[in-house]
Design a protein around this nucleic acid. Structure first.
Length: 530
RNA sequence: GGCGGCAUAGCCAAGAGGCUAAGGCGACGGUCUGCAAAACCGUUAUCCCCGGUUCGAGUCCGGGUGCCGCCUCCA
């Protein structure tokens, strides 16, 4: 294992600036500052937002586990065109809109087991800093006022385009081909730092008259306020690379006269649905709330972690025929008719007939881990985890950590857990060939090390029995299961089994299977699971 | 049009030039079981195409092809 100067383990991150995987060398030994672009709070968040929040969440958890003191900052953008638009639409103050959706966002992230950032700055609380920053840019000749607006003079900033790999000249050539260029701008690439107030909109005083900040300046102001002019890691969705982050660099480096704003840029990929990016504007999104009505927060987290944060993640959605359960394609959905069985249905019914194969797999996997954990706990008792244990479990934590050191590779880290998991299940089932004390110690070690992994993943940290019970309840509701009926059928079946009426027992098992219930016959009787 | 990214088994998905290309799902075979289920064991890939660099390439370079994203709000 290589170590850096202050003897913390070597961690690599892929830096968007340069596009390469590079060793993390923090500004101050043992300390990391992370700034992550949070949401604009004008509506409910969708699972793409969940993913964007998860990436820095896991990064922070992991860096802390590795011994770093992390200051994690995630902002809330509470001043924005869309918030204003919404407030006008709903005829209520913009602050009411932003406060409502801030609360909703926090509730969603809480359900997803996200850690709280150390600071969650809001734009509206940083107006002084923003105005000062704009002023600094004007003073340096990097910005100019024009009729109550203030624009950034992009041509004056040499490194412009480095992050996104664009050249200023090329951008100028193609500018205007897509949108009309504002005539008050000196150059089409110049962007607004400050916008003059329009009637009916919230505004703040400034040297250029009443107005409000442009889109990018708030992140420059808030990051320097809470992390300093130069800090370690800046994150956000890929779509923010240009222009948002490019502009942040121009603003911050320009205003402060420095050549490094963020040392490392990390960007997460999108959630795709049907091969397209999930986005508000495309209308193809599922809100976090929609999904959390159906699956546990941990199942969602697990699902999001099965793909590396930089890559696209397919959010599979299947619509099943309410009658025959066949998968219905888009054409069939539009026709409201199942091709397989001819069943005719309606839109509302269809909407409730969706299933999410990826999420389902994650849900099952999390349940499997908890079931293993439950057994391991029982076997371990209060056995000391130190000493000889079986191979896979013994190497689990090191391998897990190693995977994450490589650019927070969660899919690899989750993969590392597989062998130990089956090893422990093997020990629980028979344990033949393994000494009893080794079995117990292995179980104890597994429980202990999984707790460490759980702290990093934000998964598998609950009490197993409680989790499984809650998950079962949620799943029963999801598939519309009548639990009392299941209990009755199971009792009937138990009676049949006791009288060795296998045909009847098997028939009842099939009935239960059709309801989505799996029956397990054990030495202590039969139990059902979902 | 410019820029960026991706292309690995039936599906999903790791692979920071070099041991026999992780792992999951599915499928198949087996152990267990009254039969099952669960669990466990086993089987299931030479990496989009062409050329190059190298002793050695899924991994680097060049050229294709195909997807996706950004260039306007966007996680």
């Amino acid at each position: 294992m290589t170590e850096n100067a202050h003897s913390l383990p070597e961690i690599h991150l892929t830096d968007t600036l340069g596009g390469k995987k590079v060793p993390l060398r923090t500004l101050e030994p043992g300390k990391v500052g992370i700034y992550c672009c949070g949401p604009t709070v004008y509506d409910m968040s969708h699972i793409g937002h969940a993913r964007a929040a998860l990436a820095p969440d896991v990064m922070t958890r992991f860096l802390r586990q590795q011994g770093y003191a992390v200051k994690y900052v995630r902002n809330i953008t509470d001043i924005d065109d869309k918030i204003i638009a919404r407030s006008l639409e709903e005829d209520r103050p913009a602050t009411e809109v932003s406060e409502q959706y801030t609360a909703e966002y926090q509730r969603d992230l809480d359900s997803l087991g996200m850690i709280e950032p150390d600071v969650q700055p809001k734009v509206s609380d940083h107006m002084t800093e923003i105005v000062n920053l704009v002023q600094a840019l004007v003073d340096k000749g990097l910005a100019y006022a024009a009729g109550g607006d203030v624009y950034y003079r992009v041509r004056q900033f040499g490194p412009y385009g480095e992050l996104s790999g664009r050249s200023v000249e090329e951008m100028i050539e193609s500018a205007g081909s897509r949108i009309e260029v504002d005539e008050r701008k000196e150059s089409p690439l110049d962007f607004a730092l400050w916008k003059a107030a329009k009637s009916g909109e919230p505004s703040w005083e400034s040297p250029w008259g009443n107005g409000r900040p442009g889109w990018h300046i708030e992140c420059s102001a808030m990051s320097s306020t809470h992390l300093g002019q130069t800090f370690d890691i800046h994150g956000g969705g890929r779509d923010l690379i240009f222009p948002h982050h490019e502009n942040e660099i121009a603003q911050s480096q320009g205003a402060h006269g420095i050549d490094t704003f963020a040392k490392y840029w990390v960007h997460n990929g999108f959630i795709n649905i049907g091969g397209e990016k999930m986005a508000k504007s495309l209308g193809n999104f599922w809100t976090i709330r929609d999904i959390l009505d159906l699956y546990t927060g941990e199942a969602v987290r697990y699902f999001l972690m099965t793909v590396h944060y930089r890559h696209g993640l397919n959010f599979e959605v299947e619509v099943l025929c309410p009658a025959c359960r066949a998968v219905m394609g888009t054409a069939q959905q539009n026709a409201l008719r199942c091709k397989a069985c001819g069943h005719e249905t309606d839109a509302a019914t269809l909407r409730s007939s969706v299933r999410f194969p990826g999420l389902e797999e994650g849900d099952d996997r999390v349940a499997y881990v908890y079931a293993t954990l439950e057994g391991a706990r029982a076997l371990a008792g209060d056995t000391d985890p130190e000493g000889e244990v079986t191979e896979a479990v013994g190497g689990m934590l090191d391998a897990f950590v190693e995977a994450l050191r490589n650019d927070i590779n969660t899919p690899a880290a989750l993969g590392v857990l597989s062998k130990p998991l089956s090893e422990v299940n093997g020990l629980l089932a028979s344990g033949k060939g393994v000494a009893k004390d080794v079995r117990r110690r292995t179980a104890a070690r597994f429980v202990r090390d999984m707790a460490t992994a759980a702290g990093v993943l934000g998964c598998f940290g609950e009490d197993p029995a409680a989790y499984l019970a809650a998950r079962c309840e949620l799943k029963a509701a999801r598939i519309g299961l009548d639990v009392a009926k299941v209990e009755d059928l199971l009792a009937e079946r138990t009676a049949a089994r006791e009288s060795k009426d296998w045909a009847e027992a098997d028939r009842l098992r099939d009935v239960l299977a059709d309801l989505g219930v799996a029956v397990k016959d054990g030495p202590d009787g039969s139990v059902w699971t979902l």
